[in-house]
Design a protein around this nucleic acid. Structure first.
Length: 293
DNA sequence: TAGTGATGGCTAA
DNA sequence: TAGCCCTCACTAC
């Protein structure tokens, strides 16, 4: 289920649960037994995210790279009091746990990741160097994305999904943000105006943090404004303060302009929402609102 | 209860 | 282009 906001939220949960703590690591499934052995009893220094990639630093300059892919999950849950102090191998396991990280008060089980590997510090730079700017990172430079968009004949909907152009955008955000700016998803990158690109980028910088805070993709204006008002009032904290990954239920009603609304009326013009595969995923768009102008 | 598709993206062919 | 990772929410029966 991960777009970039999910991974940034996950990094935050890992930090709240384990940062600066010596942890136990194991691989109940066995497929990461060697790596887990190297991580075991190290201090988890800090977790961070770049787009959909999670990087976790352990003492001794040992780095873990995780990519959840489409089906991976990595819930961080508090340990029930009666299970604390047990050897992590004695904790109950559900599913194929590639990597278990256990601390004094929490346990995190990684299941179904696309990537789970130890990487040398130098490889981190190589990995992030292949990624485009991440709107969730304060040092992100949107011009790096623009340089690729403005030279490409590929459809903008395909470019937005390309992690080398923008890191962290997935199928929901690409469909919704293109609609929010009434951009024809099939328009070639080089025909996009710089001001349009900048507006899309600024919108991502606004929307993705809401996704991190609420663990929910928000793209409808009324919900965005309600979320921002809660944050400004300090009320959003109660949704995030104790978040360790348990499913809390959606804080906002789950609704989008287009996503998974094939054939239903566009919320702006009433014409039918269209869908077709693009860049390996289902693109949703409104043929009238997003007509090329 | 069983089947399906997905908020990814790599590798092999 | 298909396979894979092998989860999870949702649907049809």
């Amino acid at each position: 289920m991960p777009e970039g906001h999910t991974i940034h939220a996950l990094a935050g949960r890992l930090n709240r649960a384990f940062a600066q703590e010596q942890v136990r690591a194991s691989s109940p499934q066995g497929r990461f037994a060697g790596g887990a052995q190297i991580l075991d009893r190290r201090v988890l220094v800090e977790a961070g995210a770049w787009g959909k990639n999670l990087f976790v630093e352990f003492d001794g300059d040992v780095w873990l790279h995780v990519h959840l892919g489409l089906i991976g999950v990595f819930p961080v849950v508090p340990l029930p009091v009666d299970l604390r102090g047990l050897d992590p191998s004695e904790l109950p396991t559900s599913g194929a746990v590639r990597l278990r990280i256990a601390g004094h008060g929490h346990v995190a089980d990684l299941r179904g990741p696309m990537t789970c590997a130890l990487v040398a510090p130098g490889e981190i730079a190589a990995l992030t160097g292949r990624l485009g700017p991440d709107p969730l990172r304060p040092d992100a430079d949107p011009d790096l994305g623009w340089a690729k968009v403005s030279r490409s004949a590929r459809p903008v909907a395909e470019l937005l999904m390309d992690q080398a152009v923008v890191a962290g955008v997935g199928n929901v955000y690409r469909c919704e943000v293109l609609f929010r700016h009434r951009v024809d998803p099939m328009r070639p990158g080089k025909e996009i105006r710089r001001s349009t690109w900048r507006a899309i980028w600024d919108d991502l910088v606004r929307l993705l943090p809401l996704g991190v805070i609420y663990h929910q993709i928000l793209t409808m204006d009324d919900q965005i404004e309600a979320a921002e008002a809660e944050i400004a009032a300090g009320e959003a904290l109660r949704h995030t303060a104790d978040l360790t990954g348990e499913r809390l239920g959606d804080h906002f009603e789950r609704r989008f302009f287009l996503y998974k609304r094939t054939g239903e009326p566009c919320l702006v013009c009433g014409s039918k929402v269209r869908a077709k595969p693009l860049a390996g995923r289902t693109l949703y768009w409104c043929g009238r609102c997003q007509r090329r102008r």
